[in-house]
Simulated assay, not measured.
Amino acid sequence: MANKVKQVWASGKAVVNAWLAIPSGFSAEVIAQCGFDSVTVDMQHGVQDYLSMVQCFQSMHAHPVTPMVRVPWNEPGIIGKVLDGGAYGVICPMVNTPQEAKNLVSYAKYPPKGVRSNGPIRAGMYGSAGTYQQTANDEIVLLPMMETKTAVENMEAILDVEGIDGVYIGPSDLGFSYGLVPKLDRDEPEILKIYEKIIKECGKRGLNPGIHCSGADGAVRAINMGFKLVTLSNEVGLMQTYAKMQVNATREKSGGKA
């Protein structure tokens, strides 16, 4: 199965990514029909577990989206397991050093590029028998998260690690590590300067920087800055935002009857 994320990047466009915190195949099925290029199951801060991840993947399989996962940590067991379950992209939190980035690559790649164990129990069904292992190393997207002061200090060395496809910015944790309040769409000059450098350094290496946004406005701003993957909040945020808007509109327009 070709990776749509890599196809979008090859076309020169930015990837529009969805984010699933709710452990529901039905929610995943609805989101997968909304026009996103990829859909990421959040196993770090979402309330997803492994089985709910698989259910989300099964529900979105009929739709042209790339299934991805944010794993809870940079650990070989869970990285291999989400890939075996069908993830075609791994976003990994708190990668602070080049060695940790090398570890991520090693855990996610089959030999000789890595140490991933063979057993794609579900992912193997994406092609005919034996073909998955031939293409997985090239098709799977690997995005270590750059979200701490330490990671920024090691930026160029991390980006030099062979096998990653870019980095993914966690704006809340990044700001937090610099003594700022956690939020998504950042406007502090010191953080914007970091973004500019990440985009520049990724560009030098043919890598694709991604970032988590609160919605369309932040995503468009990020794309115009040069980010190549933007996440539009998550399904919880989208549901809350629209629900609040509808409730408020009902109360305002009811003339005090609601």
Score class of each variant (00 low, 15 high):
residue 108 A to C: 15
residue 41 V to P: 06
residue 80 G to Y: 04
residue 64 P to A: 10
residue 70 R to P: 02
residue 81 K to L: 10
residue 10 A to E: 14
residue 150 T to F: 05
residue 245 M to R: 14
residue 241 T to R: 15
residue 73 W to V: 14
residue 198 I to V: 13
residue 76 P to T: 09
residue 178 Y to P: 04
residue 111 P to Q: 06
residue 251 R to F: 11
residue 27 S to L: 01
residue 81 K to G: 02
residue 17 N to V: 08
residue 100 E to K: 12
residue 219 A to N: 08
residue 237 G to T: 04
residue 8 V to K: 03
residue 109 K to A: 06
residue 209 P to Y: 02
residue 224 N to Y: 03
residue 119 G to A: 15
residue 17 N to L: 08
residue 130 G to W: 09
residue 234 N to M: 02
residue 243 A to F: 14
residue 103 N to E: 15
residue 73 W to Q: 12
residue 37 D to E: 10
residue 217 D to M: 11
residue 106 S to R: 10
residue 215 G to D: 10
residue 6 K to H: 00
residue 12 G to Q: 11
residue 47 V to E: 10
residue 21 A to L: 05
residue 70 R to I: 01
residue 179 G to E: 09
residue 138 D to Q: 03
residue 148 T to E: 04
residue 243 A to C: 14
residue 110 Y to A: 03
residue 100 E to Q: 15
residue 213 C to V: 06
residue 171 P to R: 07
residue 201 E to M: 02
residue 57 F to Q: 01
residue 226 G to Y: 04
residue 170 G to V: 08
residue 154 N to S: 13
residue 108 A to H: 02
residue 160 D to T: 04
residue 137 N to Y: 10
residue 143 L to N: 00
residue 81 K to M: 07
residue 81 K to W: 07
residue 186 R to K: 08
residue 185 D to S: 07
residue 200 K to P: 02
residue 23 P to L: 05
residue 6 K to E: 01
residue 96 N to H: 07
residue 175 G to C: 09
residue 146 M to R: 01
residue 27 S to C: 14
residue 20 L to E: 03
residue 54 V to L: 15
residue 203 G to Q: 11
residue 114 G to H: 04
residue 209 P to Q: 09
residue 188 E to W: 09
residue 65 V to W: 01
residue 212 H to S: 11
residue 133 Q to I: 08
residue 74 N to D: 13
residue 154 N to F: 04
residue 40 T to H: 06
residue 11 S to K: 12
residue 241 T to N: 15
residue 24 S to L: 06
residue 55 Q to G: 14
residue 59 S to K: 00
residue 181 V to Y: 10
residue 237 G to M: 05
residue 23 P to T: 08
